[in-house]
Design a protein around this nucleic acid. Structure first.
Lengths: 207, 207
DNA sequence: GAGCGCTCTAAGCGCTTGCTCAGGTTCGGG
DNA sequence: CCCGAACCTGAGCAAGCGCTTAGAGCGCTC
């Protein structure tokens, strides 16, 4: 009897944000930042979307930048976990790479509103906050590189330039957040499958 | 005796922008928009970088948005021409696709400041201007799709989903503008070559 | 039922924004 | 030598910005 929105845990984003008013503000901020960008979004707009007065925002968050940081932090945690789960799972390097790409891409498509903020508003973060996020991003890179390296060592992949190919794979996936449109003809599932196939070709995986 | 900056024609960007003060303002705007984003850039900042007063900007441009539009228009024209030149050149589909990717990527790396504005500030354009730019982008998509389709028809490529793969190829190249760093270890040339190879693998090109 | 802590609002402060305008400087042509 | 056009500046306006403050309403404990 409960919708997907009501179940807790992994499938409900922002369930870790409490109290409820703070979560409403955060969800409103995600929408506004994704639509117009961080700098073009006003605190009045965020508060308005959450059905509150502008001052209410400052009870739950010290600054507008702190809101962005919380969004970015939670999003990066989630994305990193998707990649590390795939990297640590059993199976051949091909299986794990396909898994990583499929789930990473699906997240960027399904949650493209969030992903857009997470991937394209890094420069609006303050220096300390940005450094923290960049560290998470390096771990994402390491997870993918590990899969590709192991595929090469196992003779399963043919990759002349491992760091370069790792960068290209992540880049390809991240850019989904820019172009994906919920009204478009492709489902997140379909894009994930297509991309997993393309990436296996990029690394020269044996069939 | 003349540097690359002084030679005219293709290799000098913005040579079509006159008078010189208007060009200085536009170059300053490109730098500022790329660093901070359109909305976070002030007209005072642009004028200051060009060594002028804020009011001087409005002699050459009606609004700040018109500056963005001129940058976007010129950049899109240039990028589209790179792709169409490659698509129309002689040679096998593999040659033409590699050529398109190599030159498109090299432009995004060499001119990553410009490319960042061109690719990531579309939403800051006014409605009319955005529609004009979107039309140019569709032509870029068509040029790449044409090469891939012809490769498939010639039996040279193995591509189950032509529109999806076209989208992925362009997406991969465009994202270079986001991550490319002039201080990094790769030259634009190297990235172009790497990416051309990766894309040929994506389309299953025969060796 | 008085006191307290938490949440929220109305009002507004100090500042910056995109943009304007009156006036000054420069310079080629008559 | 003067004129008009082109270009640029200093000063500033109205609007909107992020954020603060004073105080109201609420539900809780004792």
């Amino acid at each position: 009897m409960s919708t997907a929105e009501e179940t807790d845990g992994e499938n409900t984003p922002w369930s870790e944000v409490t109290p409820e008013a703070a979560r409403r503000l955060l969800v409103a901020a995600v929408e506004a930042f994704a639509e117009r960008g961080y700098h073009a979004t006003t605190t009045r707009d965020i508060a308005g979307r959450a059905g509150m007065s502008p001052a209410a925002l400052y009870i739950h968050y010290k600054t507008k930048e702190e809101l962005l940081h919380r969004i970015s932090r939670i999003g990066h945690d989630r994305a990193l976990r998707l990649l590390e789960t795939a990297a640590d799972s059993g199976g051949t390097p091909s299986d794990r790479l396909a898994d990583a790409v499929r789930s990473f891409v699906r997240w960027h498509a399904e949650r493209h509103t969030t992903a857009r903020v997470v991937q394209y508003e890094l420069e609006a973060l303050g220096d300390g906050h940005r450094a923290e996020i960049v560290a998470l991003r390096r771990k994402s890179d390491a997870a993918v590189r590990r899969i590709i390296s192991e595929g090469v060592r196992a003779g399963e992949f043919d990759v002349p330039d491992v760091p370069g190919t790792t960068l290209a794979v992540l880049s390809l996936c991240i850019d989904v957040a820019r172009w994906f449109n919920a009204q478009g003809s492709r489902t997140p599932e379909e894009v994930g499958t297509l991309y997993a196939d393309l990436v296996l070709r990029m690394v020269g995986a044996q069939k």
